[in-house]
Design a protein around this nucleic acid. Structure first.
Length: 477
RNA sequence: GGCCCGUUGGUCAAGCGGUUAAGACUCCGCCCUCUCACGGCGGCAUCACGAGUUCGAGUCUCGUACGGGUCACCA
């Protein structure tokens, strides 16, 4: 069987993580089965359309590494791939369905429809126009009366199908409404456009959110009425913000681009969301796109919603950062380091080396190195260290030792400085650890730094190192 | 409310009738160590509840509770 899957987002804003995951799974499933992955833009809802949203979809898929084989700009004979460019098609098929007995004209007014509300406030259609005679229909049509075309749901049948994730799903036809297929403005509803497009585009596997799980039998009835082959279905549980709420655009940072600008790597985001609702057979946690394709299987799909946990995504991102070569990491980190040192003349490569194992996301960088261009009065209590046996007296002595050791010293390398400090500490009768601890604080004014005293001295350079030592000495007094 | 779907630690989750109920994140402790981090080792903590089927149930069935979805000329 030729596998053809599709991702059909609506251009109504930025690309939401949950939505992206649906696209990812459709992509993985297609690639796993040597199939074709198709992008279709579902923009029939003109009211919710957002300017620039289509570009956002392209951009997101590209940086996420999800490449479609067919789409608006890659027509393989099934186009157009944008629903508003397919408008003529739907009306034609809706009329065809009427001929086939699977749909009918409905001339009910909005006012009449509004009176049809059940005790729970839900709209229900009473099939008023289902059995209009040929003459009545013709009369309305000739009058130019506005109309919609509704699905003619067969009576007393049970529509069921085998969902690839949930197994058998069935719904009785009495629970299915004669829904609108073609609106009075001549445009199709999602329900209809979706079926027609999926069929015409030869979609073999429909992969989408569970919100469609219970309406799928209704769509199947349309396939049946046309005499079309039904596709296979895979419904996906949503990604949640917490136990009750779906991840929502309103909470701000649930979209792909935001995470990218916060310093997440696209591959880490993809990896993480792939694992939300799916688990590979071997339980691996870090997988590249190729590995995801290789190990993707339906068995691993979850039957229950998953809560999005940014803490874990941070961790995963950190793993990706650590796995990079120093050069790769530097390329990614450089702009953030620049931001942190604010134009000061420090060796950015050296700084990158210190940072690589100490951050989870790139945006952690500026804060971690702020002390480099911001060194002023600090709390001297930092010098007091029980375990190290350092107090103010020891600290002053240690600073003196360090200063003396370095003021005429020129081998400004890690090894060089380290040996020099060690030697001088010992000959002064002090533990090198005490000197280095003190020196680290004296050089940074921070309780926590991305590296020890020696590394800090190397990054700061000789001149700045001596200046800060002197400054700290004064401060302790 | 009707219908549909679901429920394993705080979170992601493995598990497909017999397990000491994996693993990961988080958190805590220890080791390493000039702070932190990395790395290594260890720890806390889970089968929603009740019946049934069975020699045996997280795994099967049925109820209950809880959660989600859906009932539009939105997608």
């Amino acid at each position: 069987m030729t596998v053809r899957t599709r991702f059909a987002p609506s251009p109504t804003g930025f690309m939401h993580i949950g939505n992206l995951r649906t696209g990812l799974y459709a992509y993985l499933f297609a690639k796993k089965n040597n199939g074709t992955f198709i992008l279709r833009i579902e923009d029939t809802d003109q009211e919710r359309k957002v300017e620039g949203a289509v570009d956002m979809i392209y951009r997101t898929l590209e940086t996420a590494g999800i490449t479609y084989d067919e789409g608006p700009d890659k027509d393989a004979g099934y186009g157009p791939y944008v629903q508003t460019e397919r408008m003529g098609i739907y009306k034609e098929y809706a009329e065809k369905l009427v001929e086939l007995g699977g749909a009918y004209y409905c001339f009910c007014t909005k006012e009449r429809l509004e009176t049809l509300v059940d005790e729970n406030g839900n709209h229900t259609y009473d099939k008023h126009c289902r059995n209009l005679s040929e003459e009545e229909i013709k009369k309305h049509l000739d009058n130019g009366d506005p109309y919609v075309i509704r699905q003619k749901v067969p009576e007393n049948v049970v529509s069921s199908y085998e969902d690839m994730v949930f197994g058998e799903v069935s719904v009785e036809s009495k629970d299915i409404e004669d829904g609108v297929l073609l609106k009075s403005d001549g445009l199709p509803t999602y329900n209809f456009a979706n079926v027609v497009d999926d069929h015409l585009m030869g979609i073999s596997h429909v992969i989408r959110g569970t919100e469609y799980l219970s309406s799928t039998p209704k769509y199947n009835l349309i396939y049946d009425a046309f005499g079309w082959e039904r596709p296979n279905y895979m419904h996906l549980m949503p990604i949640m913000k917490d136990a009750q709420r779906k991840l929502s655009k309103r909470y701000g940072d649930a979209n792909f681009e935001d995470f990218i600008s916060k310093g997440y790597l696209p591959e880490a985001i993809i990896n993480y969301i792939a694992l939300l609702g799916w688990c590979p057979k071997d339980n691996r946690e870090k997988l590249s796109m190729e590995e995801l394709i290789e190990s993707f299987d339906i068995d691993g799909l979850s039957h229950s919603p998953s809560i999005f946990d940014e803490t874990k995504m941070r961790w995963l991102n950190g793993e990706y950062l650590k796995a990079m070569s120093p050069d790769e990491f530097y390329a990614k980190a450089e702009p953030w380091i620049e931001k942190g040192i604010d134009g000061k003349d420090y060796d950015k490569k050296e700084i990158a080396l210190l940072l690589q194992t100490r951050i989870d996301i790139l945006s952690d960088i500026p804060e971690k190195i702020a002390f480099l261009n911001n060194f002023k009065e600090y709390d001297t209590n930092m010098f007091i260290h029980q375990k190290m046996k350092v107090d103010f007296e020891v600290a002053k002595k240690a600073i003196d030792i360090a200063t003396d050791a370095l003021k005429d010293f020129d081998d400004w390398t890690e090894d060089g400085i380290k040996e020099q400090i060690k030697a001088c500490a010992e000959s002064a009768g002090m533990k090198s650890g005490q000197v280095m601890f003190t020196m680290r604080v004296a050089l940074t004014g921070e309780p926590v730094t991305p590296g020890g005293a020696i590394e800090m001295a190397v990054v700061l350079g000789k001149e700045e190192t001596l200046r800060r030592l002197a400054f700290s000495k004064e401060l302790i007094k």
